[in-house]
Design a protein around this nucleic acid. Sequence first.
DNA 1: TTGTAGGCGTTATCAG
DNA 2: CTGATAACGCCTACAA
Lengths: 296, 296
Amino acid sequence: MEKSGYTPNAFARGLGLNTMRTIGILCADSSDIYLARVIYWLERELWKNSYASMLCCTGYDLEEKEKYLHLLLSRSVDALILAGSQFIEEKEEDNAYLYEAVKKVPVFLLNGVLPGSGAYSVVCDDELAVKEMTDELIGLGAQHPVFLYRSLSYSGKRKLAGFCRSLAEHSIPEEGRFFLSPAGIPETAQFLRDLEARGVSFDACLASDDELAAGAVKYALGAGKRIPEDFQISGYNNSLLSICSTPEITTADNRVEFLCTTAVSLLMQVLDGKDVPERTMYSANLIRRATTKSRP
Amino acid sequence: MEKSGYTPNAFARGLGLNTMRTIGILCADSSDIYLARVIYWLERELWKNSYASMLCCTGYDLEEKEKYLHLLLSRSVDALILAGSQFIEEKEEDNAYLYEAVKKVPVFLLNGVLPGSGAYSVVCDDELAVKEMTDELIGLGAQHPVFLYRSLSYSGKRKLAGFCRSLAEHSIPEEGRFFLSPAGIPETAQFLRDLEARGVSFDACLASDDELAAGAVKYALGAGKRIPEDFQISGYNNSLLSICSTPEITTADNRVEFLCTTAVSLLMQVLDGKDVPERTMYSANLIRRATTKSRP
DNA sequence: TTGTAGGCGTTATCAG
DNA sequence: CTGATAACGCCTACAA
């Protein structure tokens, strides 16, 4: 055409082709240190495939999630990516809107599964990772491990299941060994102090993410417990927090980059009309640092 | 209309109205712990005003920034928000694409200024904050403060200027007192070890962000220096890293929420055809924690 | 008040 | 192979 800087009108183009090459990304909170990395990698990969990203931070309220999802659908995004496991609700009927969405566009769940919905899932094997981590801490001498989690989301539940499975294999009763912790580093530290005051005894703390683990470190330092001799700690996500903390925190690397590149690659295939598996699972890597005893 | 779930076609709508109520957000790296918060608040505020957010993570390469900006313009976003100060290039001609963009849509710079461009700026008074922080550390006994920065972006330069202004007022020569540090906590710790090995002496370290400050904490712990008696440290941003670190880091809170609500509020006024000031500046708050001596 | 025609800018189709 | 034209779906303006 005219070599004058001509740019086709995106709306008219979208109207004709019925696509704007845009993917909707939903996440509960993009400022979460883990989800922020997910979003970064998703956006990057989508861009490589010349798709734009429409980002929505829904918060943790069901109604908001629904509103946002409808917003994205009304904008005719080509697909939806739901980042993080807070999108699968406990009550089956609360997931109705997701089933509806699947009818309209491909939906990808990152670290979540909605059986029979037709949504695609890419998940890290959190259960196995926590089970192995628990096995390892028990093997290193932990006799009274506790598990701290932030919510019973899909991956929260799977992590807890891994913890309990390890306990069972070591004949440790699981009762009173796992707790819902408030979010935030000082809050978690306080929670552990309260727990101790209530008479719960523990010599190891497995946390469902690095922030809770950092709180456990603060607790131990404040209580004068030696890490890792008196008290072992493990986190999850291999985030910046795990190396910012002193001592540096043993954690599980759930490989955000791999998660996102895989999800986007599968999505591109789906958009090309190809057949891809509905579920993809990959394993995490244990990163051993200074909050756990070194292996013999 | 029909009470059956009718949703107007967004493309046709956009074609007619020539707007999709979408704002383009550019940032270098949405996984950065500071920018992630900016994006969270921007998206949230835009949503409140029923605008959607198109997110682009450009990286730090000029060419990529330009490509992304053109992508957004070609999609007819209603405005652009450039989050973070890495969008103003050193060479004036490298900013040409920004001047071009301003001709087409309102452009907001967060923590950046492009004089005479017609772009709107909302900036934190980083210079004043670092100056006050430096004043305070010197007042608390620091005789050989150093300043660590990550890049000479707009806000990087202003922070450095604040540091130098304080030194000048205290008759301390600025030569050899500020350094470009590599990113990353262990890298910064190593950098300070190298600095010491090169014979540079320092008893306080002001960092341009909390991550560098966390590296300085690691350095001090490793070198057996007592914090804050032998070595004082301050960060910037009041991020999670500052309270994850032990001891917790004195930092400046540049109030991300205020920054973003202000920017979006101004943007909405601009889109309404109202006249708003091109530059808005607000001040940061010093947050005193355990890496600096307590005031008498 | 209600209904209908035209325009938005691109793409795709169909006829020449 | 090329050039005219319908269709995309909504909005708005104008006419009945």
